[in-house]
Amino acid sequence: MTPLLSVQGMTKRYGAHIGCADVSFDLYPGEVMGIVGESGSGKSTLLNCMAGHLRPDAGQVVFDTRTDGPRDTVTMSEPERRMLGRTDWAFVHQHARDGLRMGVSAGGNVGERLMAVGERHYGDIRDKATDWLGRVEIDAARIDDRPTTFSGGMQQRLQIARNLVTGPRLVFMDEPTGGLDVSVQARLLDLLRGLVRDMGLSAIIVTHDLAVVRLLADRLMVMKNGRVVEAGLTDQVLDDPQHAYSQLLVSSVLQV
């Protein structure tokens, strides 16, 4: 089986400082990978390098494209990479404001990716937008409201709808539940889990919240100081952490 995404020797330096160093892993179709670690451990740098937002200093990101099979997205041309970014890839930002157009209605936000790939029928775009708002549990009556009038949780769900409307195969998520209160987090996780299972999505989730990866991720990587210190099945890593830092991380979670 061909991995959907294969990362080899990913390294990003900020001058003398290491962002992430020599990270390698494979992600298979339908698999959800969690990346955990403390602030500054290089999680987001790694994610941005994989998603093409940052240019890595070394390494490959080989993605199994629909048309041409496995291609290295780091060396592919910018138009191709941006095309991937709005078709087969999706990126969910931690802050919904970074991923949404705040001056454009909810329907326009969801429709943007459709129009970007050439959809030119208003009625169809609107139907799809309505359908997707329903799937992320936003009232269809809010379709013409701007995201500025939405609550934080709704904004985050709208961002997810906007990203998934073109049926991507790989979703990058950067702290998707950050900044939300626990009950809203729980509903969002529930929703994400449903979408990931229904659509057969592969996802890479960066978070510092172990509960999120426990619920969503099949596999886990623990990062510290830009390096992967432990990797394995989620339950295995969380229940029987081997590395000292993983043990610290797991034991730091408050048991309520």
Binding site: P79, G111, E112
Partner: peptide, 18 residues
């Protein structure tokens, strides 16, 4: 330069929806 003009239609979409 990359001929990414989906956004222009978002403006027209907003017009129609409003």
């Amino acid at each position: 330069s990359l001929e990414e003009y989906g956004l222009m239609h978002v403006k027209l979409y907003e017009d129609i929806s409003r």
